[in-house]
């Protein structure tokens, strides 16, 4: 079983990201479970969402404490939330950041960076001040983890994106091709 934790801020689309990625895995025949952090979410406040996937039905229904991989939708969260809490050794931490990898010190993990904000703005996803980066970063995540094909991810994005479907797909494709490890 693979467990994924997504860190974001309320309104960035962390929960939808968890559902889209679960859908992509489901399309490839995996058993999946996606759920949000069970709290009272507020816009801008730190939030989490989770995905479990496996080859057999997912039975465990407790929270995720030791994820295999972590996605960070907003790099400023790293200063206030322990984003690698419980992360398994050699797990990926994928950060939406415009900085170089030298700025992040996670020696036990594989750090991957993508400037999802810039790409989201260029594709006019959300507004320039509050870009929607959730679908964008999933392209990079699919690429580095190799958990799903881009074809499945694209289909899942098309199923879930409420507006600007082609732009969401194009942006995800761009991070799929440009993510830096």
């Amino acid at each position: 079983m693979i467990e994924i934790r997504i860190h974001g801020r309320g309104g960035q689309g962390s929960v939808v990201a968890s559902k889209i990625f679960a859908e992509a895995l489901f399309l490839e025949g995996k058993y999946v479970q996606a759920f949000p952090e069970f709290g009272t979410e507020r816009r801008g406040a730190p939030v989490q969402a989770f995905v479990r996937c496996g080859e057999t039905p997912i039975l465990v229904r407790s929270n995720i404490y030791e994820p295999d991989h972590v996605i960070v939708l907003d790099a400023s969260l790293i200063e206030m939330v322990n984003v690698v809490s419980g992360l398994k050794r050699s797990g990926f931490i994928l950060i939406n950041s415009d900085l170089g990898s030298g700025n992040y010190n996670f020696p036990e993990y594989r750090v991957a960076l993508v400037d999802a904000t810039k790409i989201a703005v260029r594709h006019k996803l959300g507004t320039p001040t509050t870009p929607i980066v959730n679908t964008v970063i999933l392209g990079a995540f699919a690429k580095i983890t190799n958990l799903v094909s881009f074809t499945s991810l694209e289909k899942a994005v098309r199923d879930y994106a409420p507006v600007k479907i082609d732009e969401n797909v194009a942006a995800a494709k761009e991070t799929y091709e440009n993510v830096k490890i």
Binding site: S18, K19, A22, F26, Y31, V32, Q33, A34, F35, P36, F38, I58, R61
Partner: peptide, 11 residues
């Protein structure tokens, strides 16, 4: 169950 089912997405 609240959240463990109400907010959990699965097939």
């Amino acid at each position: 169950d609240a959240f463990f089912l109400s907010h959990t997405t699965e097939p």
